[in-house]
């Protein structure tokens, strides 16, 4: 038990350090953009006085380090300043859009896992046979289709051909949670499909490897059926080795959701990000970028913790 606590503490320190670095780089990136931020925001028609006023208001006249510290301290309270374009606090804007992006990513992740594990298990049973080849080929095709193209194809398919899902409609989770979820499923599916191919390919390879492992052979010599070996040994071991891939997939999914939101007309972070870019809304932009970066760091932290929870060797490697 001591090991687990030690491991978690070590990882937490690592996580905090990374988060701090991420915050610094995000902040620095927006500070070194060439040109005067205030001038860029106000446009060419603004007077020198107006620019100077905005500079003081934004704190641009102070040294970088001081600006970073004051930005960080307010960021830790959840205060990223006020959006210039929307005249609303950045944190409120983000938190109102977050459920869409996060919900969509989570649904996509669940689809990826639920689909790729059983398919990989089926293929790894008889590699090279018809089922395996057919599924692998299907995976390759899916992998090659970009999410936005897939989105449009699916929209046409579902609305015109089946007429099932009302596309382009959106309900807030607080109003109608069921409807909120249902309008996320199709976009989530679009993001998930190419990622299924990727996860599936990786899982298939690792399951084939573990099927030929010495411990699978031991279990066989103990009299276990192939199915029991799959459930008891092969799937848990492949799960550990696929955690890294799955966390990569999830950060890909979040990136993919930014585009798919556009196609499905959903009010997520992606649309907010685009709005912030097109209106040169720097406080909002840095807030969103920091949020996305932080989520990726959280994701890796969580995947490390899950891996350590399943695999005793990872806990020991760190603490012994």
């Amino acid at each position: 038990m001591g090991n687990r606590v030690k491991f978690a503490a070590g990882k937490l320190c690592e996580f905090l350090l990374t988060a701090l670095l991420v915050s610094f780089f995000t902040f620095a990136a927006f500070s070194i953009i060439p040109g005067d931020a205030a001038r860029v925001m106000l446009g060419t028609t603004a007077t020198e006085e107006q620019v100077e006023h905005l500079r003081t208001e934004l704190g641009l006249n102070e040294p970088l380090a001081q600006r970073y510290v004051s930005w960080l301290t307010s960021a830790m309270r959840g205060d990223f300043g006020k959006s210039l374009a929307f005249s609303e606090p950045v944190s409120e804007l983000i938190s109102s859009r977050l459920p869409v992006t996060l919900g969509m990513s989570l649904i996509a992740l669940i689809i990826v896992i639920v689909v790729s594990f059983p398919f990989a298990a089926v293929c790894s049973r008889r590699p090279g046979k018809f089922t395996d080849r057919a599924l692998s080929a299907a995976g390759h095709i899916l992998f090659a289709i970009p999410p936005f193209a897939l989105s449009m194809m699916l929209i046409i398919l579902f609305t015109r051909v089946f007429g099932i899902v009302a596309v382009g409609q959106y309900a807030r989770p607080s109003d109608d949670f069921g409807k909120f979820l249902s309008c996320l499923i199709l976009p989530a599916f679009c993001i998930a499909l190419p990622k299924i191919a990727m996860t599936f390919k990786f899982l298939r390879a690792s399951m084939i490897e573990y099927s030929a492992s010495d411990f699978a052979r031991t279990s066989k010599s103990h009299g276990l059926t192939d199915f029991m070996i799959l459930i008891k040994h092969i799937i848990p071991n492949s799960a550990v080795s696929s955690i890294t891939v799955i966390s990569l997939v999830l950060s890909d999914i979040m990136g993919g959701s930014l585009i798919v939101e556009q196609v499905f007309n959903l009010p997520g972070l992606g649309r907010l990000l685009l709005a912030a870019i097109s209106r040169r809304d720097f406080p909002l932009l840095s807030g969103i970028v920091f949020y996305l970066a932080l989520m990726t760091v959280v994701l890796y932290f969580m995947s490390d913790m899950i891996a350590a929870l399943i695999d005793p060797r990872i806990r020991d490697r760190r603490t012994s």
Binding site: F215, N237, P312
Partner: peptide, 24 residues
């Protein structure tokens, strides 16, 4: 035959290094 494995016939192999599931 599978039923016999472990019950009437036991087997041990050459290299024990990875013959046990590391997660259990």
């Amino acid at each position: 035959r599978r039923r016999l494995l472990g019950e009437k016939i036991g087997i041990i192999f050459q290299d024990p290094s990875s013959a046990l599931d590391p997660l259990q």
